[in-house]
Design a protein around this nucleic acid. Structure first.
Lengths: 249, 249
DNA sequence: GCATTTAATATTGTATACATGAATAGCCTA
DNA sequence: TAGGCTATTCATGTATACAATATTAAATGC
């Protein structure tokens, strides 16, 4: 049993229904964002229900929420699986982040205070630490958290929620298209950004954020991964016929 | 089972589950957007289940989706009701529209063709017609449809979806804070906008959209409606003590 | 031996029954 | 008669049973 499952089970008994569902939602969401559940992975209702000790009813509710956030894909009569973002979706997501996150920087610069800046620095520190200790998945999530917190500081809850969704999906995109060893966010980018914001320089922060996001996007290798069930005919073509069947499988 | 229910069941025939749910979702969503279901209205699961001849299970699924889109508010153990947007939410929504819709105009101007322009003009025409014939609720929805279609033309599905949600919520905001007789969108604004877009003048379209949205927002009367259970202490304060109890209620 | 059809199995879709908690009405008391 | 308490009613939360469909395995024909 994985750590997620164990943790969830330990937490399971003493919680009220409402909070319980939220906990499970976070557990699944985190597992996806941190790539412990990889794109394409099937999420069977029974299995999840067993793991979290609730009935399928509750699981379905959570899966639907995740589906609306586009972290999982719900195929009728086929069930749920972790979304595998396409290259086009990846482009859309990063374009959206350019528009929204950059657009928010002036507002953030206007509203940020010493307390908020300190909080952000602490988040950036944790992120660096995770990177140093090789916990790349954790680092990805912390990075997303940083961007979300930033958006929240703009004071616009609606746009902050959009950014939250975009960051979740970005984590998924990084998980699929990112190079191992080269995490999206450069180590000190976030600290630099905080500096500009704290100095009240919204425009500087805006252009920095733009470059920051462009850098992340540029670091991706946008090759669509093979299907789970690859079209062998397509892969081997005629040459495949030259090989005896059982030498490969 | 009563005869009425039997008859209704016979009537409800040929749709597949998937499509059926989508139909019901649209029915409820439209009713909310068109103000046939007013903010604050309770949406009892049994009642909806009866109306649409499905079990509460399906209704709950739909209510949850609407809740995630913030068209309905789900209060634990109290059920669902049509969301009553606060003034702050209204501001957030219109700020978000400023950022996103205006930001999309250059893209739209680049991608729009004769066919798309014609389609938009037809939508604008229908909207004017609805206005002329006094169908204000319909006009509000058509206006939202116009803005959504526009966003879709940008080619960014993610941002288009955001705009869709913002427009739905805007309809709710208009329903609550809008003056009767003064619909948000001026009659010919949309036609003018199409002109700029078709001319490929993205920057002009952008600034026009900005003014257009500002005009809508400015037309609202942002007075929060009284609560269902007003805080009398807060309202009357000390002066309330000077009045004999039974002269007011 | 391979392909195609058919049976078995597994998984999701839907409805319903029961449990839990909230709102309400009636009752009792002061 | 007003205030508070209790019992009833009503609505939602949750689990489970059953139905429908997809997947897998087996069997049969070519």
């Amino acid at each position: 049993m994985s750590e997620v499952q164990m943790a969830a089970k330990r937490r399971a008994p003493a919680k009220e229904g409402e909070e319980r569902h939220e906990t499970i939602y976070r557990a699944v969401s985190d597992a996806i964002v941190e790539q412990r559940l990889k794109p394409g992975a099937r999420l069977r209702e029974d299995a999840l229900a067993d793991v979290f000790n609730i009935s399928r009813t509750g699981i379905r509710k959570i899966l639907q929420r995740l589906a609306l956030e586009q972290l999982v894909t719900l195929t009728p009569r086929r069930g749920a699986s972790v979304t595998r973002p396409t290259a086009e979706e990846a482009k859309d997501v990063f374009d959206a982040r350019q528009l929204i996150e950059c657009g928010l920087m002036p507002d953030v610069a206007r509203r940020i205070g010493a307390k908020e800046a300190a909080e952000l620095r602490e988040m950036a520190r944790q992120e660096r630490q995770a990177l140093r200790s090789g916990q790349q998945s954790i680092a990805i999530r912390l990075s997303a958290d940083f961007h979300v917190r930033l958006a929240q500081l703009s004071g616009n809850a609606t746009l902050a929620e959009f950014v939250e969704r975009l960051c979740s999906r970005s984590s998924l995109i990084l998980a699929v298209y990112g190079h191992r060893g080269h995490l999206g966010c450069e180590s000190h980018d976030h600290d630099d950004l905080i500096g500009y914001l704290e100095a009240g320089n919204g425009e500087r922060a805006k252009s920095f954020m733009s470059r920051h996001l462009k850098a992340i996007e540029a670091s991706l290798s946008m090759v669509e991964e093979e299907d789970n069930v690859p079209d062998l005919q397509d892969i081997f073509g005629d040459s495949g016929a030259l090989v005896k069947p059982n030498t490969r499988y």
